[in-house]
Amino acid sequence: MEKQMSRTSRRLAVVINYGAILLFLVCFYLSDSVGWNVPIAASVVTAILVALITFFSLHVRTKLWKLVHSKIDKLDERELQVTHEALRYAYGIFTVVSLLVLLAIALSTPQWDSLLILIFASLLYLAHTLPSSVIAWRKKDH
């Protein structure tokens, strides 16, 4: 059943959902250094439950998941506009996060790993040039 949520509730759910995923990752990182114990295990279980609950209420019940995963020919022009705009933001955010993670990995290695630095530079170049490359590839001649 489709359920409407206010913008404030949706934003809160987004923050809590990603916060839960982050907590999950931190717990695994901590377990590597201090080992598994009851508080860490409880935090992991809590994080998974919170992530699942917020995922279901934010993405599934509101049908937003279905909207962004529908085939293009199933959407009308407003829905296409909404999903294209969302994809544009998502692409930008995903690129920045991915590059920051890669940079953090590269910087955390005891010695500068030249291959990682090269991969980082190449991905940075790809991220900035990919949109115009797609246009260059697809644009018709006049």
Binding site: L75, D76, E77, R78, E79, Q81
Partner: peptide, 22 residues
């Protein structure tokens, strides 16, 4: 007019500008 019924709501509330075709 070949759109989702929610889009009609957006049009009526003037929250969405239709294309020339629509």
């Amino acid at each position: 007019i070949g759109v989702n019924f929610q889009t009609v709501g957006y049009l009526e509330r003037e929250e969405y500008n239709p294309s020339l075709d629509l």
